[in-house]
Design a protein around this nucleic acid. Structure first.
Lengths: 109, 109
DNA sequence: TGCTTCCCATAGTTTATCTATGTAAAGACC
DNA sequence: GGTCTTTACATAGATAAACTATGGGAAGCA
């Protein structure tokens, strides 16, 4: 197991965060860390490549804006395709998480 | 999300399976698939490298034996270090799985 | 002036999994 | 006797994801 993140879940978590509001990268990381009670920590070296990834797939779009603090930041917005994708990923994830629980708890198949 | 497995969980699942009994690779794959109700499918190209990985770390040991079918197979047994490791990995996994659920369900941190 | 926080980004490495492929033996079927 | 399926192990090469390390810059505060 890695340290701060379950591999394969980052894109999903990013998309989920963006359903609440358009956000810049830094805010996404803060949000995930806060909601997860400090369990999920997204390194910048994971976050920004991931944002480029999901944008390249058409799941989010982005634009430069000014933050409330008067700083420039790239705001990401989830697209319709992104919402569709999020639904698929969540379903797949829940399926696997439930399956793993069955294995770990030693329940009968 | 990948297709058949949550990345980062395979070693843990293998170790968990081996707490039930020593098993050969093929049996481990069958066991995981069955207990997970066909959700978890471990490809051979993932399984055997993983078995070498956990053996190299000292979490399992192995020996050639004869199966009930009179075939030769390499049986893997979990070690004390492996049980310790399994406990750590399960705890870490449960922590992250719970954190991800909080994000996906939109609960407050 | 210097420190901290906010914010973006990339290069290079590591790790994990998958695809594809090869070997081989047992048993069933024809 | 020949073929197919199942059981069983293994590796090479590709792909993808995440990490470490590093760089820049602007705002605000001491």
């Amino acid at each position: 197991m890695r340290d701060e993140l379950l591999p394969g879940t980052l894109d999903m978590l990013i998309l989920k965060a963006l359903t609440l509001a358009p956000m810049h990268g830094y805010a996404i990381a803060q949000h995930l860390q806060q909601v997860s009670k400090d369990v999920l920590r997204v390194e910048e070296g994971s976050l920004y490549p991931a944002l480029q990834r999901v944008q390249a797939k058409g799941w989010v779009k982005s634009e430069w804006r000014e933050t409330p603090n008067r700083r420039r930041a790239r705001y990401y917005t989830i697209t319709a395709a992104g919402r569709k994708r999020l639904g698929d990923e969540m379903q797949s994830y829940q399926r696997m998480a439930a399956a793993i629980q069955r294995v770990l708890l030693g329940q009968k198949g």
